[in-house]
């Protein structure tokens, strides 16, 4: 498994392994928060910040944290950053804080963050982990933005709160409802897979080359073998 460049890692999170449409991680926010584009951006950027910071810290501590306590340690670190974001947002971005409500604290259990901590940050150096966090976070934000644009324009005839036809007209309410959320998410996931799906790995390769999880973990098995020799 050849080493990926920083740019490749970043681009991976953004497109090839977009957490919402390809990895299908952290789906609560895309379904719940995407009724308005401004909420979606706020949520996406908050998550990105937490993801980047936690990836960096966990990567820096990766040789220090013992295997036995890695999950409690990861979660504590992630929760710490989420609380910091929450406190700062409450002070300086009060209306966004109100709109996000309980979903802000739920970033702690967003699978993307714990997932990337486990699969990438704990096995790679700090700079690549930063790139991965940034890529995944921005990919997540982009996904939220796309979904919320569709839902808000079709469901509310507005975008970022700006109403196209005035306050009294409402759009197709279906898209504001949870059913519409699942529908839009499903259609977009299908579309993204049609456009960006890679060919499946050939099965007869040994080691990281034949493993479908290789790109996600950064080829750690091959590396461990090489280090052990």
């Amino acid at each position: 498994m050849e080493k990926k460049s920083i740019w490749q890692i970043f681009r991976n999170g953004l497109i090839d392994e977009n957490p919402t449409f390809r990895l299908l991680l952290g789906m609560c926010a895309p379904l719940a928060i995407t009724t308005s584009a401004s909420n979606a951006i706020g949520m996406g950027l908050a998550t990105t910040f937490v993801l980047v910071c936690s990836n960096a810290v966990i990567s820096a501590l990766r040789r220090v944290i013992p295997k036995e306590v890695r999950l409690p340690a990861f979660i504590t670190i992630i929760a710490g950053f989420v609380t910091i974001v929450s406190l700062v947002m409450q002070r300086y971005f009060a209306s966004l804080y109100d709109s996000l409500g309980v979903f802000l604290e739920l970033i702690v259990v967003n699978c993307i963050i714990l997932g990337r901590a486990e699969m990438f940050a704990s096995k790679n150096k700090v700079i690549p982990s930063l790139a991965d966090g940034l890529g995944m976070g921005l990919g997540f934000t982009a996904a939220l933005l796309i979904i919320s644009t569709i839902r808000e324009i079709l469901g509310n005839l507005s975008w970022f709160g700006f109403s196209f036809f005035g306050d009294d007209v409402s759009g197709m309410l279906f898209f504001i409802l949870p059913a519409g959320a699942f529908f839009v998410l499903g259609m977009l996931t299908a579309l993204m897979n049609v456009i960006f799906a890679k060919k499946p790995a050939k099965k007869n390769d040994a080691g990281c080359a034949g493993c479908p999880g290789a790109s996600a973990c950064g080829g750690s098995c091959d590396r461990k073998e090489a280090e052990a020799k």
Partner: peptide, 12 residues
């Protein structure tokens, strides 16, 4: 492990 976890918690 306990010590590491404790330190992390205190710092955070």
């Amino acid at each position: 492990p306990t010590l590491v976890l404790l330190i992390i918690c205190v710092v955070i």
